[in-house]
């Protein structure tokens, strides 16, 4: 407990997270912590457990072992309070997961009204403000099916932000997008990072990682193989495996 008080600018602490699906161990003891305003970028080959890790953080997947702390409070083993914690951990999904029957505005509004119990007017104003932040106030009354992929993802970012999260979790936010739409989403996320939001981002966009990350975490086979500040990580990775991955990804995605 003493340690928690000393490091009270630590927003999220992930401690030795394990997760198995059947016989396959997806996460084999992941630990890291993230301070207020930091952005950690998690990279790694598919199947390395990145998405599972994010879902373990907000307990959409319950880890088999290990603990999660959010701002000094333990999230794990707190089944009753889980909805309170989830509000404070905004999540952005690879395939957007906007509520298809609601307009962009109502997508952002609904959490405010149903979870935060705001009244309609207040929720509307706040939701509109969030949409403005991602440059979509003019699309407020459009339904998800009427939006482009990039717009959908920006709405989903606004939806998560509206809940005033302490930390944002991004699960490959641009992987389902056409190349020409990736930029607008990355811009929105960058803006957040530079605005001081605390974030964990799983991505394959190395240029983006380089420009926003305080630390890059490379995961493979359910473990953190290595991590470091972007400059050191990209120019001088410790392991041959990391080097190979970086080469491959640069080949595929460019810088």
């Amino acid at each position: 407990m003493n340690k928690m008080q000393n490091d009270n600018d630590i927003v999220l602490r992930v401690e030795d997270i394990h997760k198995c699906y059947g016989k396959e161990e997806i996460l084999k003891g992941i630990s890291f912590e993230i301070k207020k305003g930091e952005t950690k970028v998690i990279i790694g080959p598919s199947g390395s457990g990145k998405s599972t890790l994010l879902r373990c953080i907000n307990q959409l997947t319950i880890p088999d072992k290990g603990r999660i702390w959010l701002g000094g409070e333990e999230v794990t083993h707190h089944k009753k309070d889980i909805n309170r914690f989830r509000q404070k951990m905004g999540m952005v999904f690879q395939d957007f997961n906007l509520f298809d029957h609601l307009t962009a505005l109502k997508n952002v509004e609904i959490g405010l009204m149903k979870v935060k119990k705001m009244d309609k007017k207040e929720a509307r104003e706040k939701a509109m403000e969030e949409l403005k932040q991602v440059g979509l106030e003019r699309q407020a009354d459009l339904y998800p099916a009427q939006l482009s992929g990039g717009q959908k993802q920006r709405v989903s970012i606004a939806r998560a932000l509206a809940m005033d999260p302490k930390v944002m979790l991004f699960d490959e936010p641009t992987s389902a997008l056409d190349p020409e739409l990736i930029g607008e989403v990355l811009e929105a996320i960058k803006k957040l990072a530079f605005g001081g939001m605390t974030m964990v981002v799983v991505t394959h966009e190395m240029g983006f990682a380089r420009s926003v990350a305080n630390e890059i975490i490379f995961m493979e086979n359910g473990k953190i193989l290595e991590s470091g500040i972007p400059y050191q990580f990209f120019s001088n990775p410790k392991y041959e495996r990391t080097k190979r991955f970086l080469n491959k990804i640069t080949e595929l995605y460019g810088e």
């Binding site: 951990m89 509520f99 149903k114």
Partner: peptide, 26 residues
């Protein structure tokens, strides 16, 4: 999609709320 439920839960909705406000209307 399973994502509808996940997204609702990620906002802090209870399962019952997610069913009522997100799943059933669709």
């Amino acid at each position: 999609g399973e994502g509808q439920m996940l997204a609702a839960r990620s906002l802090g909705m209870k399962k019952s709320e997610a069913i009522l406000y997100i799943i059933l209307p669709q």
